[in-house]
Design a protein around this nucleic acid. Structure first.
Length: 475
RNA sequence: UGACCCGUGGUGUAAUUGGCAACACAACUGAUUUUGGUUCAGUAGAGUCCAGGUUCGAGCCCUGGCGGGUCAACCA
């Protein structure tokens, strides 16, 4: 144990660009030199391997700096969110090996404070209620190259705005009838600064607050405040939020004390070759029953990978290997696969199995005899011990391990060939028995008693032949 | 035609912050092997998007291009 700790302490810590930023913040004494991150999933689906990268990054970064990490559900859109997702997310994060301790939060915890802040924005003349349709608002937004125009409702009085917003909350208006917008700059070169919507009417029950609310805050409004209230120092998110950062900062600056500031840092999300990572598409696969649920082994979800046999440490190693940058690239799946192979090779128990059985009769083996052979559980790790494998006259090999007319590079059994059965004897195939359709149903072989494992007499016939796995029949 | 971001072998990440480009995956040889696994030895592959500039010296700094990404949801 102590040795392990020493080892880890001595290992050079590989720094990514986020670490370097944190180093800088720390030397400047920012935020009392605290490091506090958060993993903020929206509970609208199961976590996938891309989230694993973010989880390892957020928890890993805090660990490196002796800081803390919160788990926060970003549940500001009740139409997509469910408790089932909340539960699966917590299970997956734990399975990956991370612990948020007592710091479990929900954006919905802040709905009251967020509402008060919206009111404050209105009172400060920095937010207004817009009565226009979403089409109209979007039309007035302009384009990236053309400035937007101001809403006719932009200059309502504080009193009127307040009255309308309170009534929005009271449920007096239909969904889509009105929104609350921040009053910033319709001509900003950054589209997100063109009077972004901060509250909308949604008459949908929320998975936690039920029907208490019929107005819900937008991500841009809620996220920075949630970070602030939780004392987050480094708010790590993916690249597409880069252009949101000025807005993130704007809201915090308008609404919070200046005692400290969370810093948003963006990194490139994971792209894996041959792998669908879009939550929308994964949801479609589940909903349309192309797969048997979110944890189908064919899914790139954490629960799918788990069922597939991936270990948490292999996923963590993978996350470590791929690194953290802002380069939007494409990682080869073989790297993920290599990570499991590496771990499983050291830890997995080996057994023999036959999927497509082909009967083998050892003609010169005594009818009633059965012996037990020693098989190692893991050649990489002797401490995993041995097991007994029964051997008798009739047994089964894999269909694919036999070819009647083997090509040059086929190293398994064929007519007249001699190969070893793993942990057992050399057998020679003498006869191929077929049914009336010409299908091979049975092989008649003879074994060489002198070739038993451990007896040096027949150590090896030919290095080009493989040892075949087999399944016994017990009498 | 706007704002912001990115550009190092096939892929991903490094490069003591200005000192002759390293590691991993993938590929290919060969050896070993009672898992076509593992392990071991080795090979090939970029001169760092381009062009200038500063410097004794540039992947790292400056300027200008080129290429790619993101942004116009009452999603996050």
């Amino acid at each position: 144990m102590a040795e392990n700790n020493m080892k880890e302490a001595d290992a050079p810590v590989k720094k990514n660009f986020i670490d370097l930023q944190i180093d800088k913040d720390l030397t400047e004494g920012k935020n009392d030199s605290r490091v506090h991150t958060r993993f903020p999933p929206e509970p609208n689906g199961y976590l996938h391997i891309g989230h694993a990268k973010s989880i390892c990054l957020n928890f890993g970064t805090a660990q490196k700096y002796g800081g803390k990490t919160n788990l926060r559900f970003d549940d500001t859109n009740p139409s997509k969110e469910e408790t089932e997702y909340v539960d699966s997310i917590m299970a997956d994060v734990r399975w990956l090996g991370f612990d948020w301790e007592d710091r479990l939060f929900y954006a919905s915890d802040y709905f009251d404070q967020l509402y008060e802040f919206a009111l404050k924005l209105i009172e400060d003349g920095k937010a207004y209620v817009d009565d226009q349709s979403s089409e109209k608002i979007s039309e007035q937004k302009g384009t990236p190259t053309r400035a937007g125009i101001e809403s006719p409702f932009r200059n309502r009085t504080v009193e009127e705005n307040k009255d309308l917003f309170v009534r929005m909350k009271a449920g007096e208006f239909d969904e889509g009838a009105r929104v609350l917008r921040a009053k910033i700059d319709m001509a900003s070169p950054n589209m997100h600064m063109r009077d972004p919507i901060i509250y909308r009417i949604m008459k949908a029950p929320h998975h936690r607050t039920g029907d208490k609310w019929c107005i819900y805050p937008m991500y841009d409004f809620a996220h920075g405040q949630s970070d602030y209230w939780e004392g987050i120092t480094h708010s790590i998110c993916t690249l597409e939020f880069e252009v949101h950062r000025p807005l993130y900062d704007w809201f915090v600056d308008q609404l919070q004390e200046t005692d400290y500031r969370p810093r948003q840092i963006e990194f490139a999300r994971l792209n894996l070759s041959y792998t669908v990572m879009s939550k929308r598409k994964l949801l479609e696969l589940v909903k349309d029953k192309h797969v048997n649920g979110w944890d189908d082994p064919r899914m790139p979800t954490i629960s799918g990978l788990r069922r597939r046999g991936y270990s948490p440490e292999s996923i963590r190693n993978f996350a470590e290997r791929i690194g953290i940058t802002k380069v939007d690239g494409m990682i080869d799946v073989t790297l993920l696969e290599h990570s499991v192979k590496e771990h499983l090779n050291k830890t997995a128990q080996r057994v023999m199995g036959v999927l497509g059985p082909l009967k083998v009769v050892i003609t010169n083996y005594p009818d009633e005899q059965e012996e037990e052979l020693d098989a190692v559980n893991n050649p990489e790790d002797e401490s995993m011990g041995k097991r007994k494998v029964p051997f008798s006259k009739v047994l089964y090999i894999e269909k694919e391990d036999f070819m009647e007319d083997p090509p040059r590079k086929f190293f398994r059994l064929g007519p007249g060939r001699e190969v070893r059965l793993r942990y057992a004897y050399f057998i020679t195939c003498n006869d191929v028995i077929k049914d009336e359709n010409g299908e091979i149903i049975e092989l008649h072989c003879t074994y060489d008693p002198a070739s038993k494992r451990g007896q040096l007499a027949r150590w090896k016939k030919s290095k080009s032949y493989l040892a075949l796995g087999f399944c016994p029949t017990r009498r």
